[in-house]
Design a protein around this nucleic acid. Structure first.
Length: 207
DNA sequence: CATGGGATTGACT
DNA sequence: GTCAATCCCATGC
């Protein structure tokens, strides 16, 4: 008879840089269900958006500047920037080095470190702990100093979806909070998930 | 050097 | 539904 330790899956390694070096839309889709960790806090990624230098909603659209240097750098690093003067938004840099592209992590299903998250967010409502890009950064303690850090060997890590969790059913739609390239359906989320930043007003479309 | 625009959120009408 | 908070950085003079 198999023991518990034999039955348990081996400890997962963070996603390799090669995972992020692919097309940003592919990475945005496949990051759904993966686990984001910082310190004692962990959560399942339930919502993402893709950004690419070829479209004007992406910061990298203007070319390489001090601000966008991280976006054009090697894949598998964190691009963290300040939004509206208040919030730190976390992205995963994608595509080969030299291409400006990233996936914005927009919402998590909290797994571990929930008490600390609640303390930082000043709420105990689990649904609103990480249901937005600014919220999840606050909950996990992610700030601008982590811009450029590795998502594999740095303080922030992203782990693959646990094998015993089945592949999530996804929905897809236009990105939120942007004024340019609003027609692109580059937002992804787990279908019917209550932990996303905003519900899907449109009819469900499967990926 | 001055200005303006946000990949958001929470409080309020 | 409206709106302000607040800061980094790109742009233009």
């Amino acid at each position: 008879m198999a023991t518990v330790s034999e039955r348990r899956a081996p400890a997962a390694q963070p996603l390799p840089a090669a995972f992020f070096a692919r097309e940003v839309l592919t990475v945005a889709r496949e990051l759904i269900g993966c686990v984001l960790a910082h310190g004692p806090c962990r959560g399942v990624i339930v919502e993402t958006e893709a950004y690419h230098q070829s479209e004007p909603a992406c910061h990298a659209y203007i070319g390489r500047t001090p601000r966008t240097a991280t976006l054009y750098g090697p894949p598998g690093r964190a691009y963290v920037y300040r939004s509206y003067g208040i919030h730190a938004l976390l992205n995963a840099v994608c595509e080969p080095e030299g291409v400006g592209a990233a996936v914005l992590i927009r919402a998590l299903y909290p797994l571990q470190g929930i008490e600390l998250m609640a303390q930082r967010r000043r709420t105990s409502d689990r649904l609103s702990l990480c249901s937005g890009p600014g919220k999840l950064s606050q909950a996990l303690g992610i700030d601008l100093s982590l811009n450029g850090s590795s998502l594999r060997g740095g303080p922030i890590r992203i782990y693959p979806r646990h094998p015993r969790f089945r592949e999530p059913e996804l929905v897809r739609g236009p990105r939120i909070g942007i004024s340019k390239a609003t027609e692109l359906p580059w937002r992804f989320a787990i279908a019917n998930c209550k932990y996303v930043s905003k519900p899907w007003p449109w009819r469900r479309s499967f990926v």
